[in-house]
Design a binder for these strands. Structure first.
Lengths: 238, 238
DNA sequence: GTATCTTTACGTACAACTTACGTAAAGCAA
DNA sequence: TTGCTTTACGTAAGTTGTACGTAAAGATAC
């Protein structure tokens, strides 16, 4: 493919003209399924290299709007819970020459900046509503279990770490219902907490705490099939 | 003064050439003295208009380094406790035409961006070590008690609000010793907590909590003169 | 000098929350 | 039937937080 026809290169030309230079947005999109906390990653065209979804800010666009755009385009969701968690602004965040070589993007002709300041946002989304979609630079978009995330391009492993630490710190205030289906069991909610905290919890105490919070409504049905004693289904109350 | 000789305009020309466009840094510098929480503000040349100290990021400079530079230049301090707390990135953060008119800066010839994304940092500094210094755009740099801060330029009242909320949330983890002299009394530490929280605390319970934390070392001397019963002096332990 | 008031310094009682662990019912597997 | 795992609910002890009592030290008023 001629490099000027490469859709990724054309995208970078568009960005170079219309977006703010020296800045980008990186989105850590968290989902939860099969008792595993997951992030959405992209595989770059013609490579085995993965990265977080990202994007750029139009010159007159609100930063939060740009972040919404990034997450919407990869997930297909229109209502999002998004949170700005950190700015990654070191002069040398990663080895640029090496990273861009690994992406196999023929960007040598493009006027772009020598370094990038990245605004980190994390999103909490309902796994089952997401349709993962790659962008112009990538072949594939899919969920990865947090513990299995491979070595990523740029400093994206570090960004995921910081996002997870932020989520952990804010766990008690955050609307975790965003990460769960409408109906779920207390053991499932416990696995979610354990994945975020990275440590096991005592189920007896977890039950007590969740029921005492008054935020859960017990439904008459139980989840059948999966476990020994069928657990009740719950729903978050408005 | 000819506008091309205005040192502030010359500074903007320098910034326009060497710094990242569309971005700035705003610093909320907190100090504590006479039982009052204070912020350092600047009065713009030939006006009664005040703002936070701010600055720009050189194209190859780390964002944290730029923030240090901003705070160092206004305070004269070289070791700083600085914390990135929020990005202010709305497309319309404030009325630009009106704000720039109020600054009385003759910037019509300067190539600068239509909007600015500001990175908010707060600093906790030792009031008595600070030498407030105005910059090229300003006549005066001085401390203001938080409750007495006037209507500021840009969206800087909002930025102070958000900084204070962040500090409040992180109060228990933050090194508040940065805000205090080497030696202080428990009642002084209590006033500091009260200023940050914006609410009175029970002195009996505050004593218990501070002593139980194990972070304080009682000195043999007491503070004389100021109060009825002379309070003991304390120091933070390493 | 004595009485009074304010501020510090330390103490007690109780409520709220956390942690550790016990146990029976429900379902699966041998 | 026996044994194992998982859910659902309970109890006891420990820790933390809140409300408030009070005596000592110093300042102020008379």
């Amino acid at each position: 493919m001629n490099k000027y026809n490469h859709p990724g290169v054309q995208y970078f030309q568009h960005v170079s003209e219309h977006c703010i230079h020296y800045m980008s947005i990186d989105g850590v999109i968290f989902g939860f399924s099969e008792n595993q906390l997951k992030v959405l990653l992209l595989r770059w065209k013609g490579t085995d290299e993965w990265s977080l979804p990202g994007g750029f800010i139009y010159k007159l666009e609100s930063v939060d709007t740009a972040a919404e755009r990034v997450v919407q385009e990869r997930t297909g969701l229109d209502k999002l819970y998004l949170k700005q968690f950190h700015v990654f602004g070191d002069a040398n965040r990663y080895d640029q020459a090496d990273t861009w070589r690994r992406t196999k993007m023929p960007l040598d002709g493009i006027k772009w900046s020598e370094r990038t300041i990245s605004l980190g946002y994390y999103a909490l989304v309902n796994y089952s509503l997401v349709t993962p979609m790659p962008d112009l630079m990538t072949d594939e978009c899919r969920w990865w279990n947090i513990p299995e995330v491979p070595g990523l391009l740029f400093d994206h492993n570090h960004i995921i770490d910081v996002a997870l630490q932020s989520l952990r710190r804010e766990l008690s205030d955050q609307p975790l219902n965003q990460l769960l289906p409408d109906q779920f069991t207390i053991p499932e909610l416990q696995r979610l907490h354990e994945c975020i905290l990275g440590a096991p919890l005592d189920s007896r105490n977890f039950y007590k705490k969740m029921l005492a919070s008054g935020q859960l409504e017990r439904l008459p049905e139980r989840r059948s099939g999966t476990s020994h004693k069928a657990p009740y289904l719950y729903r978050f109350q408005p």
